[in-house]
Design a protein around this nucleic acid. Structure first.
Lengths: 138, 138
DNA sequence: GTTTATGCAAATTCTTTGCAATACT
DNA sequence: AGTATTGCAAAGAATTTGCATAAAC
């Protein structure tokens, strides 16, 4: 059985390097969105900070990960399989927990149809819900 | 008739200064969200960059403006009247035009009820719709 | 062997902080 | 007069760029 990282890299015709493999694996195991700083903390003695920046940019360009924005800044999360270079699904729902600070993708939640004022053409929607996650709300 | 800026500053018990007046007026006339950089471009010879940062922070703390986030970074937009220090409305819908790059608040659009997986408690929702605005979609 | 990715250094850009001078009420 | 705001200088983060070396295919 081939690893997620190896498989993903080959699918997107990217060279297989240590940094790329490690970052993909981190995204795959953590189910939450990760910031550059999160990765740097873990990988700082293995890879240069700049390499991490470039890896994130490469992955985002290829549609492997996508940006997640909240008031604390920029994070990235894995795109689901349905989300390829040219066949993107255009809704993202993220949940940010005010208690633990973690952001998760809620892939199973669909954004309902929204009626826009006339003239507006929708291409992509991004919903950020803030509140308390199951772990923290007990 | 009192100006929007003067009125807003008094309502929130803030001192009336040139920078605050000018920034409020800019938000009031532009109907779109503005980044620090946008304001700096216009006001750079009148006020220090740091003063603009501090003014934005003050306004955001008071609930006069709110943050708007998209892939290009952080912007601010005026809160509507319904949005006071303690009586915030917790839904924001923003539209970002891919053509002209401008972000506008769609105050008239309400976010439909969304069913979250069990355990998640919603406090605030933020919807960013990207596409083409009326001006650019002709 | 050719192409692409990495590491390092350094440059840019963005944002915050401290403090004295100034402006507001 | 008393308090809050501003400007300036400088520090601290975050991000980008150039280029030689190293790794992948």
């Amino acid at each position: 059985m081939e690893s997620f990282a190896t498989n993903t890299l080959r699918t997107h015709e990217l060279r297989h390097t240590g940094c790329r493999e490690d970052i993909l694996t981190l995204f795959y195991t953590h189910k939450t969105a990760l910031a550059h700083g999160d990765l740097e903390t873990v990988l700082r003695d293995r890879y240069d900070r700049v390499t991490i920046y470039r890896t994130l940019k490469t992955f985002a360009d290829k549609g492997i990960i996508h940006k997640v924005l909240d008031e604390d800044g920029l994070r990235y999360a894995l795109c689901k399989d349905t989300c390829h270079d040219h066949d993107h699904h255009h809704d993202h729902v993220h949940f940010k927990c005010a208690a633990c600070g973690q952001t998760t993708c809620l892939d199973e939640v669909r954004i309902p149809m929204i009626q826009l004022p006339s003239g507006y053409q929708k291409r992509e929607t991004n919903l950020l819900i803030q509140g308390t996650c199951p772990k923290c709300s007990q």
